[in-house]
Nucleic acid binder design. Structure first.
Lengths: 207, 207
DNA sequence: TCAAAATACGAGCGATTATTCGCTTTTGAT
DNA sequence: ATCAAAAGCGAATAATCGCTCGTATTTTGA
């Protein structure tokens, strides 16, 4: 485990103080992205908002992209925790209940930090090609396809892969658009959307 | 029609030569966005690729954003021509046929210049807030809602606005994702998607 | 034919950016 | 108390950016 030479010694936080610095930097990145947009998120500004010097920033993050990537990881982690816990129940439920649960969870996930999610989804892609979100969706797709296969006899569709694609893409788009653009305010609006989306998907799968 | 003062005299192309310059600039913008991404699309580079000087660029486009906006307009124009022609027939057709037509047209529209569409959809939003695409979608939504109202007695849904949202969002997401990410190659794949999407939407509207 | 208008040019300005590096301060194990 | 390692600092650098402006060239209309 030979250390890289002194010319690029990006460190890993080991002490308490440095942990706090790293956290502050990631948090500052999130705040700036949300409040001022990607263009204003310069490394100097991020360090300033974090109450840290630029030099410290570069001790832990080799580039600006690494900082954004860390933020995305943190957000994905939070989403994953919400989703995985609630989805465990669904895999053994009948289709109607499972789909309803899936839609509800999707809305919940999008509501975790909507503004951050929005920025991450609509402003970030240009950064190199951070396909972490895409990876996330692929997991979601595989999970759903497995579920469909476990209920194959109840499902009308022939190509379960295609069916999974149709369902996952639709649910994602509906919940994403509703939460981030149309702004679901009331609980009634949310329940109406859950009802409609469930009807859409269940009808497609079973009728 | 008082001209703006000399301090901001961005002109409007009137001669043949200047028309060609403007076209070359917009075309160069498209090429760079597609081949090198947004970050590489500097005004100096755009002018260079267009075979034109930066000074000429700023004679017709007051800012870099104006250039991108012009490109978006050009693309939207092309899409609009394809969509409006083909959609005129659909408004008088029964639901099943109309939806099928709608899906087919959506795929066709996304296939006009997929790479440009991709860049425009996934990399551009950060620019100021070019909501031209959103405007486009709103038109699409209004049109579909009108259609649903004209067939109200055949439709099962209560809230036609919500139903239109569900349908338009799903169709857009399915065709967008299929064409730009999953890459529909064969005609069979395309027809399969049309079948499935039609079944999804028609089932939702009528069963 | 020729002057005025339109068009084109491109070096260069000022601002901003990501990143570096020599230095100081803090920490923790002895 | 000591001291090496870890963490922190921020002025400085080099690159890039959007954009201007004085000048050169082409086109137009009479």
């Amino acid at each position: 485990m030979a250390r890289k030479p002194l010319t690029n010694p990006r460190k890993y936080a080991s002490q308490d103080r440095s942990r706090a610095t790293v956290d502050a930097l990631v948090e500052a990145t999130a705040r700036i992205l949300i409040r001022e947009g990607f263009d204003k998120a310069s490394t100097n500004r991020i360090a300033e908002v974090a109450g840290v010097s630029v030099g410290s920033l570069y001790q832990y993050f080799p580039s600006k992209e690494a900082l954004v990537a860390a933020l995305i990881d943190r957000h994905n982690q939070e989403v994953r925790q919400v989703v995985q816990g609630e989805l465990a129940e669904a895999v053994n439920a009948p289709v109607e209940q499972a789909v309803r649960k899936l839609v509800a969870v999707a809305i919940k996930a999008h509501r975790i930090d909507p503004k951050l999610h929005y920025v991450l989804a609509e402003q970030i892609p240009r950064v190199g090609r951070l396909e972490k979100v895409e990876t996330f969706n692929r997991e979601y797709y595989a999970l759903f396809k497995d579920y469909l296969e476990s209920r194959r006899d109840e499902i009308r569709a022939v190509d379960l892969g295609l069916a999974a694609f149709v369902c996952v893409t639709s649910i994602e788009a509906l919940t994403h658009t509703a939460v981030l653009h149309h702004k679901i305010v009331s609980d009634e609006a949310m329940n109406a959307l859950i009802d409609e989306a469930t009807r859409l998907i269940v009808g497609y799968l079973m009728n």
